[in-house]
Simulated scan of single mutants.
Amino acid sequence: MRKNAHPHSGRAFTERRWILPFFASLLISLTLFLATLFGIFSSPSDGDPLSLDFISFSPMEDSSDYFVESDLKISFDQAGRSNMEAPRIAYLISGTKGDTQRMRRTLQAVYHPRNQYILHLDLEAPPRERIELTTTIKSDPTFREVKNVRVMEQSNLVTYKGPTMIACTLQAVAIMLRESIDWDWFVNLSASDYPLVTQDDLLHVFANLSRDLNFIEHTPIAGWKLNQRAKPIIIDPGLYLSKKSDIFLTTQRRSLPTSFKLFTGNLQLSIFSIACVHISL
């Protein structure tokens, strides 16, 4: 009969033998874990919770606060920021025949109440366009209230790259100085210019600059430029004619000056030329 017993009965009894040790080990481990947990957060003598020391991950204090130089730097920075004020820029916007609409467009694009503006429509433009430009400026409610836009009464015949172009710019500067001296930089624009940045951004950038800085692009004339640019005599027809024509050179040549040095450069301020784009319509 024993030989005919089921062969898996002994194996099943053997496999169930691990259950009792497993539960005993689990009970002991759980007891030790709970004892350790309550032992950490409670004192064995009076049961008061222990104050645990946690590592702070907040940023450490800057060691520069312990030095006198840092305090001086902070005070200087605060003083500089408190005295910082947006600059005031004077603009000359020039145009010729058919530029009335584009001059108004450029004026609207670069307008800011802090700035000063003067418009010049040269002598080639008919009186109708000059009257239209003046009427538009006077009828604008913003310009009429702020009173920072004016139109030059005297119209000059301006020749590109000629002395009349410089003379017109100097005349505009003189008028601006006579009307108001409350501006820091002078910018010469044409009706074909259009800004790439807003006036608020431009004034914000220049607020950090010294008012003694100038941005006129110039280089000394030397070498071959002395013969090609310094000695030729240029005739500007705008000085004595009533119709515009190009400048021309004479056959005579002049000697170089000895009391001053000659420079060549750009009529417009170089840094403001970067902030504007020339549009041909």
Rank of each mutant, 00 (worst) to 15 (best):
D99I: 04
L92C: 03
I74C: 01
E61C: 07
D71M: 13
S58W: 06
K73P: 02
T100E: 10
Y66R: 11
Q78N: 09
D99H: 12
D77T: 09
E69Q: 14
S58T: 06
I93F: 05
N83K: 11
I93D: 07
N83D: 03
Y91G: 03
D77Q: 06
D65I: 06
S64A: 14
D71R: 14
G98A: 05
I89E: 01
E61S: 12
S51Q: 14
G95S: 07
M84E: 06
G80T: 05
I74L: 14
V68K: 15
M103W: 04
R105I: 03
V68G: 05
L50G: 07
A90V: 07
S70P: 05
M60N: 09
E85V: 01
M103Y: 03
E69C: 04
F76I: 13
R81V: 02
G80P: 00
R104W: 01
L52I: 07
R104N: 04
I55F: 03
Y91C: 02
F57Y: 15
G80R: 10
A79I: 09
P59I: 08
Y66P: 01
T106L: 09
D65Y: 08
S56D: 15
I74Q: 14
I89N: 00
D53T: 15
F76G: 05
A86S: 07
I55H: 04
D53W: 10
D53L: 14
S70E: 12
Q101R: 14
A86Y: 06
S70Y: 14
A90F: 07
P59Y: 13
D71V: 15
D65N: 06
